[in-house]
Simulated assay, not measured.
Amino acid sequence: MYGLSYFYWFIYGTNLDLPAVLGKLVGLGYEIGRATYRGGLVHLEPLPDGSAAKRVYEDGVVQIFADLNKGALGVYAESYNLVNRGVADLSRALAELSAPEPPRAELHISFGFSGNDCRSEKLVLAGEDFVKTGLVLVSGKPQGGEGIYILITPAGDGRYITYIVIGGGWQYTISRLKRAGDLINSLLALFNCK
């Protein structure tokens, strides 16, 4: 597996008090960008890497991103443990501000891997031979409801790019974050033809 990354979004859909959230993150050891109010709207001057805040841990970096148009805060890290730390830090900052749980949360996981598609199916379309490969899997209603969306796309020479979105209410999404490794391992097993 290569290029594994996690992005966890807290989606409020309304204006967040970003300056207050960033102020709480400073107390948790984060370097922050500058967030101010101008004309009743939040304005953000991000850090040089584009994040609203970041914290360097001994095993990597956690970045916090803000999407002011969607009223969303995102936690990005390149390892499961780091994204969990970032989610815990941001959750603590929001709890200290008495912010409610976000109405929607989404976990985005992307990675590449090498393997073989054991489920190859041949098709003939307009006289041309094709091999069906890759996967699109859906559980529940990931677009607007609660569910999981998985896209595995061939990238040539036995390589695949995988994109997973787990979305729904806060409790639904956070419970699936805890089992993300099981989901990834199950997907990889599909492409391990032994």
Rank of each mutant, 00 (worst) to 15 (best):
4 L>N: 01
118 C>W: 02
22 L>F: 10
56 V>A: 08
165 V>T: 14
54 K>G: 00
154 P>F: 10
45 E>Q: 14
14 T>F: 08
151 L>C: 00
16 L>F: 04
186 S>K: 12
90 L>E: 08
193 C>A: 09
72 A>C: 10
35 A>M: 07
47 L>H: 03
131 V>M: 09
61 V>H: 00
132 K>M: 14
59 D>H: 09
153 T>E: 15
28 L>K: 00
178 K>G: 05
99 A>N: 05
37 Y>R: 05
62 V>M: 06
137 L>H: 07
74 G>C: 10
163 Y>V: 13
171 Q>Y: 06
54 K>H: 14
164 I>D: 03
104 R>Y: 10
85 R>G: 00
158 G>Y: 06
180 A>D: 05
170 W>C: 01
16 L>S: 03
17 D>L: 02
70 K>D: 14
48 P>A: 12
159 R>Y: 09
126 A>V: 04
14 T>H: 08
5 S>H: 08
176 R>G: 00
39 G>N: 15
79 S>F: 04
40 G>E: 10
46 P>Y: 07
17 D>R: 13
100 P>V: 10
42 V>C: 04
17 D>Q: 13
184 I>H: 02
116 N>Q: 13
120 S>D: 03
8 Y>R: 01
8 Y>Q: 02
178 K>L: 15
21 V>E: 01
167 G>D: 05
131 V>Y: 04
16 L>I: 15
15 N>I: 02
110 S>C: 00
184 I>S: 02
100 P>K: 13
167 G>M: 02
31 E>V: 11
140 G>S: 10
71 G>Q: 07
15 N>R: 13
183 L>F: 09
88 A>E: 15
2 Y>V: 00
59 D>I: 12
33 G>W: 09
109 I>C: 05
15 N>H: 04
46 P>N: 05
35 A>G: 04
187 L>W: 03
174 I>Q: 05
143 Q>M: 11
149 Y>C: 00
40 G>W: 07
39 G>L: 04
192 N>Q: 14
90 L>D: 08
27 G>H: 03
62 V>W: 03
164 I>Y: 05
156 G>E: 11
49 D>Q: 08
98 S>A: 13
89 D>A: 10
102 P>G: 06
12 Y>M: 03
98 S>W: 01
141 K>D: 15
8 Y>G: 01
190 L>V: 09
115 G>V: 07
